[in-house]
């Protein structure tokens, strides 16, 4: 049964993966150069929109960790986005704390909130968990308007915050600076997610998603991993919420209705459930497609948006992830054909 030594196998493995790793590094570097250069050549409003897209991408990534990698559903992550945004706004407005520190603070608070919410919610299966999270999302705007909290939350009016200037006298606009600040946060959050998904913890998360009984038999503590994943997912969304407050310079209860939770969910599905880069595609969709729909028809923007969404789901049932895989497969077939033909000539 034993053929080669496992070491030989590992070497072959390493060669193949280091080649793929090279490509991935090159693509990443190219993308990074593009992302760094982009705001220098764009109008401020477009830079602002791109920044928001990155913020959404972080939130969708957080939702993906929960749904795509752990199999738990949430229709209430807008609530954690709100908690993150208000944490940042209140800390800056009342605490006079630098915007930089509000990001980790919002992340931590949302982690704890998500963990605590996830703990009892664990007992709920699929659709019921979605319902419980739905309740959270519906309650959130009202909690934010609640008069005893008005002193901190600013009630219906919300809180206005000031846009930070670029530090060290950098000769860039506030929007450009926030773009770079968000980009760095985004890269860190994606790096952590990549590490996580490929790790022992990530495998445990996916095992729970695929077969909870077998996962238990492998020694995985289901309630621990599920509630921690809920917390980490809320942390991501909370960081996104905090960034959004800083970028938009404003928080108000009506920015965080149930619709926000649904929009994040749409972004997740459009990008591709269980595929990390899908968050970018999902974010671009939820940011730009509504504008596009409005451009087609002001009165029927909602209907146009709906039709586009339905079409998209028909064209690519597994989101951008599925479409990309399809294209790559096609490409692989073409390449093999070419290789086969040229091979025969020789």
């Amino acid at each position: 049964m034993k053929t080669d030594t496992p070491t030989a196998m590992l070497d072959a493995q390493d060669n193949a993966s280091s080649n793929a790793g090279m490509w991935r590094l090159l693509i990443a570097l190219g993308l990074l150069a593009f992302l760094i250069g982009l705001p220098l050549l764009s109008k401020n409003f477009f830079v602002f929109q791109l920044t928001l897209a990155m913020v959404y991408a972080i939130a969708i990534l957080g939702l993906n960790l929960l749904t795509g990698f752990n199999g738990q559903f949430s229709l209430g992550h807008g609530a954690f986005y709100a908690i993150g945004a208000y944490t940042a706004a209140i800390l800056m407005d009342q605490g006079g704390i630098s915007y930089i520190w509000t990001i980790p603070a919002a992340g931590m608070i949302c982690f704890v909130a998500g963990f605590l919410f996830g703990l009892p919610a664990l007992r709920l299966e699929g659709t019921y968990l979605a319902l419980a999270t739905f309740a959270l999302a519906v309650a959130m705007p009202q909690i934010l308007k609640f008069s005893p909290l008005e002193h901190w939350t600013g009630g219906v009016q919300g809180i206005v915050i000031l846009k930070p200037d670029a530090p060290f006298g950098l000769p860039i606009s506030q929007d450009q600076w926030l773009y770079y600040f968000t980009l760095v946060t985004l890269i860190l959050m994606f790096a952590f997610a990549y590490n996580l998904v490929g790790s022992r913890t990530g495998r445990a998360m996916k095992a729970i998603r695929d077969n909870p009984t077998a996962a238990k038999a492998m020694g995985i503590n289901l309630s621990l991993f599920k509630s921690l994943t809920f917390g980490v997912s809320a942390l991501y969304v909370g960081v996104a919420g905090a960034l959004s407050a800083i970028v938009v310079q404003f928080v108000a209860p009506d920015s965080f209705t149930f619709a926000l939770s649904v929009i994040l969910f749409v972004g997740l599905v459009v990008g591709g459930v269980g595929w990390i880069p899908g968050a970018f595609f999902g974010a671009l969709f939820i940011l730009f497609v509504p504008h596009f729909a409005e451009g087609i028809s002001k009165g029927l923007a909602g209907a146009v948006y709906g039709i586009m969404l339905i079409l998209l789901i028909f064209i690519m049932p597994s989101g951008a992830a599925g479409l990309l895989k399809l294209l790559l497969d096609r490409f692989a077939i073409v390449r093999r054909l070419i290789e086969g033909l040229s091979g025969r000539k020789r």
Partner: peptide, 29 residues
């Protein structure tokens, strides 16, 4: 009762869960 969306290698790697140690933080970082 395999993990149906995972490949053979990953399915087997999950089997090591009980004899290894790590946590969310150490794995994310």
């Amino acid at each position: 009762a395999l993990f149906q969306h995972m490949n053979v290698f990953d399915n087997i790697r999950v089997g090591f869960h009980s004899t290894t140690k790590s946590n969310y933080l150490s794995d994310a970082l």
